[in-house]
């Protein structure tokens, strides 16, 4: 348990300094733990693995976009757990399931199990992308999906380099909002 905390916190601190590899490693490790957590919880209320994967992705998005709310002076595990539990209760409330069944568990339960079985969520990100403005879509596709550099993306989309960065930032936020809206309906 301690090693998880120490290792994950080190990744988080590096990711806060802008280290992309650490950020990716952090989100990967957390997503497999979140998967085990949500599958276990949702199985108990009769929900599918796809829905668990939706929740994993919502939690990963939340961890990404709310990482400024993590206080480096505090341990990471309770912070991740609070987000995971918040998203679970939000999901159950949205789906009118009983959330009285969700026990208040130990904060480190979320770090207890890994689940690396790859699953698809129900979000069709390509379809959601079509609803984004042209520059946002182009910037995200170029950099995030096709792996181009910022310079190459700026050339492809016909906008400045800082424009690409701003469009990626805003576009990902807009995409997260679309996913959240999708799950609410």
């Amino acid at each position: 348990m301690m090693t998880h905390e120490v290792e994950l916190k080190a990744l988080m601190l590096a990711s806060r300094d802008g280290d992309a590899a650490s950020h990716r490693a952090l989100l990967n490790q957390l997503s497999s733990r979140l998967r085990a957590y949500y599958k276990g919880k949702l199985a108990r209320v009769g929900r599918s693995a796809e829905e668990a994967e939706d929740l994993v992705q919502e939690a990963v998005l939340a961890i990404h976009f709310k990482r400024h709310t993590y206080d480096p002076a505090e341990p990471l595990t309770p912070w991740v757990h609070a987000i995971a539990r918040y998203k679970l209760i939000d999901f159950l409330r949205r789906n009118r399931a009983s959330f009285a069944d969700v026990p208040i568990e130990e904060a480190d339960e979320i770090m207890a199990y890994d689940d690396n079985v790859d699953a698809e969520s129900t979000y069709d990100v390509k379809r959601l992308m079509e609803r984004l403005p042209k520059n946002m879509r182009c910037s995200i596709e170029a950099v995030k999906l096709d792996g181009l550099s910022i310079v190459e993306a700026a050339e492809r989309c016909g906008i400045s380099e800082s424009g690409v960065k701003v469009n990626i930032h805003r576009g990902l936020k807009a995409l997260a909002a679309l996913i959240a809206k999708e799950t609410r309906t």
């Binding site: 802008g18 989100l27 950099v143 792996g147 990902l172």
Partner: peptide
Amino acid sequence: MRTDDLVAALSANIEPVN
């Protein structure tokens, strides 16, 4: 959407938390 793809997309070109 696969979670791996989401993680990869979120991790490309991240900026420091400022």
